[in-house]
Design a binder for these strands. Structure first.
Lengths: 181, 181
DNA sequence: ACCTGAACACCGTTCAAGT
DNA sequence: ACCTGAACACCGTTCAAGT
């Protein structure tokens, strides 16, 4: 009998994310997750004592905590490229979106919002302008992802060019921030 | 024995919304809903043959289908006042937000988006500008609601003025649309 | 320390039966 | 037509027991 790799918080969360990406949030159950890990469901509780609650928190952290990386570019270029990869991340793991919206794990969005605000502060915006700018940008990113996900899971795909639409909206928001600041 | 008011689709959905508003989406079960309606859970299926799926669809319709009302004001005033009441609606029934984000009942957001687009078209914007404007505005509304809901259900309330923040972001977005068009 | 097995209190839904 | 009761196949989680 070959020895199985031991369980770990990391391996559990990755398996769970794989399950959600492939089959949707509704099919993530402790029992099914145990099956894919080749372990009894109850073994998971040894690594995640708070159970499914903690599992979902871990999923959000894994997907949505993604601060703006340091760079020598100006604020606009930094936010433009970061927003693109953040959008990709949200779309790729669209099953996690409902969790991001609900009360669970406020840390993820708070941290991201703080990171955007910092970039705008460094660019010389006032506290107030950085605050409403970060709020508007993050709002747009979440709202866009929600709309794109809804549309993509739709039957009568009207053939919307989501890349173009995303960029157009993002440009609108960045312009507005630039003009205000 | 007093005669009970007979069940109806309407009464079921209103009870369900009341349950979600008071106790959260996680506590909406067919059995509990039956209890509050003073009926066996299985009776619900007679009015909603598609079961819980149809119940959730009904909740979304009830909360999120809300087109911009007709008015003699200019487009900016119309969207400004409509956006305020739309935000109130989303916040008041915040438990429904996760459903709005997921694939369920695409009609709600599609209809709302179409309604905004129409207002912008009437105001003389090109098809493209109306499209990206509607997308950006609705994106902001959803994203703002997500952030406000998350923050409000949070412990260490940092005392953010959400009214002011909402208006600031909304102004940013409306300014951007006005300038582009 | 790490995992298992049985058990408990729940779910959504089907289906035959009652009125 | 409208509702009930019993039943089925699932849930998350606890807890004692195994190694």
């Amino acid at each position: 009998v070959t020895q199985r790799e031991p369980l770990s918080r990391e391996r559990i969360i990755e398996s769970a994310l794989h399950l959600v990406d492939g089959q949707g949030l509704g099919r993530l159950t402790m029992r099914r997750l145990g099956d894919t890990l080749e372990v009894e469901a109850m073994a998971i509780y040894h690594h995640l004592p708070r159970g499914k609650e903690q599992l979902l928190d871990g999923l959000i952290d894994h997907v949505a905590v993604m601060p703006v990386p340091a760079s020598r570019d100006d604020w606009r270029a930094r936010l433009l490229s970061w927003a693109g990869t953040y959008r990709e991340q949200l779309i790729e793991h669209s099953g996690v979106m409902p969790l991001l919206i609900t009360r669970r794990n406020s840390a993820a969005l708070t941290e991201t919002s703080r990171s955007i605000r910092e970039v705008l502060r460094e660019a010389g915006l006032t506290e107030e302008h950085a605050d409403s700018g970060a709020h508007t940008l993050l709002g747009y990113l979440i709202g866009h992802a929600a709309q794109e996900i809804r549309d993509r899971s739709h039957d009568d795909a009207t053939g919307v060019d989501w890349d173009a639409r995303f960029t157009a909206g993002l440009t609108l928001v960045l312009d507005a921030i630039e003009r205000a600041g």
